[in-house]
Amino acid sequence: MQLRGKQKRYLRAQANHLSPIFSVGKNGLTQAWLDQLDGALDRRELIKVSLQQNTDTTVEETAQFIESNTDIQVVQKIGRVLLLFKESANEKQRDLSTKVDKI
């Protein structure tokens, strides 16, 4: 699903109170990290990822790596934090994505 402007605005409002639960550190971007990220998004649908000070990758490189290797969408980039969204594969956990579809 490609997100429209109003949908992104709604997701940003929902993520306002969230804290980053994933981070990119000195080990950089690996397939194992990406698999864990994908699993967390299946349960939550909306998460924040922060880039630590000691990482060698930039926010743009991280966003490009995530979007090119998965169906995860980058909703917003704020400084060293990425806001990510993915519709859950489990229908019972699609609370947020059903609201986004209605917008």
Rank of each mutant, 00 (worst) to 15 (best):
K102I: 10
A40E: 07
N27H: 02
K8P: 00
T98A: 14
G25Y: 08
K26W: 13
G28E: 14
R4D: 14
K77W: 05
D101N: 11
E61F: 09
T62R: 00
Q14H: 08
L83R: 05
S97R: 03
M1Y: 12
F85W: 10
A40Y: 01
K8M: 12
Q93A: 14
T55N: 05
Q2T: 12
V81Y: 05
L96W: 01
P20Q: 07
R12P: 04
T62V: 14
Q31G: 03
R94I: 09
L37N: 00
I47N: 01
D71P: 03
L34E: 03
K26M: 12
E60Q: 07
T98P: 01
G28W: 08
R12H: 06
T70G: 06
T57K: 13
G5K: 11
I103C: 04
R94W: 10
R43H: 08
L18P: 07
S97F: 01
Q64C: 11
F65G: 06
Q76P: 00
A13T: 06
F85D: 05
L84M: 02
G39D: 14
L37K: 02
D101M: 12
N54R: 10
F22A: 07
R43A: 15
Q2H: 11
L46R: 02
Q52Y: 12
N27P: 02
V49L: 15
V59H: 01
A32T: 11
D95H: 09
A63F: 06
N27L: 09
D35P: 00
G25E: 06
G28Y: 13
K26R: 11
T62Q: 03
A13K: 04
A63H: 01
L84P: 02
I78C: 09
I78E: 15
D38M: 03
Q36L: 10
R12D: 10
R94M: 11
K48D: 06
Q2V: 07
E45C: 02
V59E: 13
S68G: 00
L83F: 12
L41P: 07
A63M: 05
N27K: 07
K48G: 11
S88M: 00
Q73S: 09
Q73A: 03
T30D: 07
K77V: 15
E67N: 04
E91I: 15
T70F: 12
F22W: 05
E60V: 11
A13H: 05
E67G: 03
K92C: 04
L29H: 02
S97C: 05
K8F: 04
G25V: 02
D101G: 02
R44W: 05
Q52W: 04
R12E: 15
D71E: 06
R44Q: 14
R94P: 08
L3A: 11
Q14G: 08
N16Q: 09
N54F: 13
Q53R: 10
L46E: 09
V81T: 14
L83S: 03
L96N: 02
S19N: 08
N69V: 00
Q2N: 10
Y10A: 06
R94L: 13
H17E: 11
R80E: 13
T55F: 15
K86H: 12
V49K: 01
V74Q: 01
T70M: 05
E87R: 05
